[in-house]
Amino acid sequence: MAALENPADLDEREREALETLLKRLADDEFVLAERYTEWQVRAPSLESDLALANNAQDELGHARLWYDVLEDLGFEEQELVYERDPADFRHATLVELPFEEGDWADAVLRSYLYDAAEELRLEALEDSSYPKIADRVGKIQSEEAYHLEHAQNWVERLADGEEGHQRLQDALDRLFPHALTLFEPVDPDVETDIVDLGLRDATLEELGEEWLSIVVPYLESLELELPVSSQVDDDTFEITEEMLPEKRGRDGSHTDAWADLHDELTHTYRDLGRSETTKIMEKPE
């Protein structure tokens, strides 16, 4: 497939596919990072505080990389974050849900569900026809591998105790439908284009099925209950309509928590009447 080298040469369809893909990626990372930072100075120990802060900064760094690619299409940071209508954000609802104070089980399980999906998604971008995407995947993958390990260590440790196990189960019941929205389309036609144009080489259905085939047996091995079972039918995992939550994020429908979060994170920018954002780091290569 021909590489889509020059952003100026892209036609309407190519632009829309690229923009859609990048917003999915960037918004997921950005909003997840925003939620992770809530644990700074509130984690169970100084060590876990440092570790999660690290992950938050990694995710924020990845968001920065993807937003920077969007700047190829003429967007600026203030349009992408600080002045964008909250309903135009494309992140999955999984990343926008607030944490209950002290619910560390939610933090580590959410991290596991997300990082497992992220691993598959990045694999499918390794040979992207947009070279800048393919170039950036490697750097991100090296950090994400550590996140997944960190999340699994914690999930396993909590699953081992009675209270931890119960809290994981509660978090799973709440988060699982929202995790499935990671594989929901922004617009089905555009999603088809994303794959047809070689921007990503797996469909959302394929990614979702693969994800289920990994996380379901893993969580079952920790004696956690899921709405799907690997015992019933172990070769056809599928995300069905009734498994999904009402708000799906990708299509612009969000939970109320997102409006509040967006309001808070844009507070200073609005309060000071800013019209641009400050860059203090060099543009990523």
């Binding site: 950005f30 925003e34 930072t37 700074q40 100075v41 100084l46 505080d49 440092l50 802060a53 690290n54 938050a56 900064q57 924020l60 760094g61 968001a63 920065r64 937003y67 940071e77 974050v81 600080y82 808070e264 994170l265 507070h267 200073t268 920018y269 000071l272 800013r274 954002t277 400050t278 860059k279 203090i280 780091m281």
Partner: peptide, 20 residues
């Protein structure tokens, strides 16, 4: 959270982490 740009946010998160 309230930092008015992504770079400021990153630097501020890192600062809080450094302090811990």
């Amino acid at each position: 959270r309230q930092a008015p740009s992504i770079d400021r946010k990153l630097a501020f998160s890192a600062k809080v982490q450094d302090e811990i």
